[in-house]
Design a protein around this nucleic acid. Sequence first.
DNA 1: TATTACTTGTCAAAATCGTAAAATTTCATG
DNA 2: CATGAAATTTTACGATTTTGACAAGTAATA
Lengths: 242, 242
Amino acid sequence: MNLPSVAPGQPLTSDLGEAMEFIRNVPIFSEIEASELAKIVRVGVRKKYKKGSIILLEEETGAALFVIISGKVKIVRTDDDGREVILSILGENDFFGEMSILDGLARSASVVAITKTELFMIHRRDFLKLLQDVPAVAVSLLKELTMRLRKADAQIKSLSLKDAAGRVANVILQLADDIGTIRKGRVEIDELPLQQDLANMAGTSRETISRVVHMFIKKNHLELQGNKLIINDYEKFKSLYT
Amino acid sequence: MNLPSVAPGQPLTSDLGEAMEFIRNVPIFSEIEASELAKIVRVGVRKKYKKGSIILLEEETGAALFVIISGKVKIVRTDDDGREVILSILGENDFFGEMSILDGLARSASVVAITKTELFMIHRRDFLKLLQDVPAVAVSLLKELTMRLRKADAQIKSLSLKDAAGRVANVILQLADDIGTIRKGRVEIDELPLQQDLANMAGTSRETISRVVHMFIKKNHLELQGNKLIINDYEKFKSLYT
DNA sequence: TATTACTTGTCAAAATCGTAAAATTTCATG
DNA sequence: CATGAAATTTTACGATTTTGACAAGTAATA
């Protein structure tokens, strides 16, 4: 794992228009008036990270909200033994860092770039002010947290009740929903994460991932083309393993 | 499992003062002015359920917020095979039902009374109005959801990385935090849930609960007095199994 | 109080899953 | 394109956990 890339963080003032355009498309900010938005954009900072770099470290306290401009990150909790659980994978327009802002506690998870990633950072105080001033942002945020709780609950159910095959199927279906594309009636997942990452999402070992994925391929549920995973019949697969 | 008890739900107008007193002590309403509070109390409804009755059923849509006046409930997700996962156990002053209100989706979990329970119910529209009118409520709610997300994430980590003993220890520690009391420097859990419920929380079988708890007792970490579980050295136990 | 329904402790058999290690493939980089 | 590093596949094995069962204990109730 690399150290954080020390991008100095250029202010966005150089290109306000572009930044506005971006931020307006971020769901939790979509309700904000242009004037408010401009304030935010002016105090925000743009940061770049290369693949593998640690963006935030567990146990840290300094709080800020980050919105993903481009790239993908994983939210990770780590064991004393160094084993990790991936709580979620976030992509463009998703945000993170809100939990420490809201309750003031130390981060309970680290954030790692899994591709080259560009972020938009808003300091705690600015974000809190926004929450105060624009009630719609609070409501958006409530909706987003609710969605995350639903996902977490589904994950707990899966981990509690399903065997390894079921949990892996779940992770694949989750990825399909999050980053899958539909082509010729089939769902494709480009850039399938590493087996080790899949294992860390499904709460199993890398070996089991290998075994189970090939079992699915033998049963014609899945197809693997290089780094692309194809679900032949999404609905059928879902109904069989959910 | 019994059918829902059909308590007709008496308005609280009969005893406004008492209801105010109660609602004022509920954390998410603590910031509200007395006048606002009175409105809420007037539109709220009190409901009673007996042990074992189903308060809310998964897949239902009708949305309302419930605050627990007295008793305990479990939030449960159920398998097609009827196996269940307990997502959390809530007690006095806790609330539930907010997720469907916020995102409008059907409930993803059922709620079952595990003791005789009395609830205070606020209809969706009244709660949404409250959110609009009193920003502090939104912030309280955001904090509470954040806390629940942290708990859920910890649960996911535990289920993913720990063996059965570790997961059981985790559930016991969680119960200690939620409903434990400190006596003579030790943490006591009165009314330990049934082994089957513990199993449904730890994602394991009842037999394993029995085996592991007795292993902990042999190692002098725990003591069992009837239905009361005592953690002899909370910190040590935590450090050994967390 | 007697009876019935739950709840718990424990066992043996069977299944599941993780660990380890070696062989092979894929990928990144000079 | 070659080469070393990283990632994956495969195999075998053993440890953990689940299943299903039953007896003993406890609580609930008629």
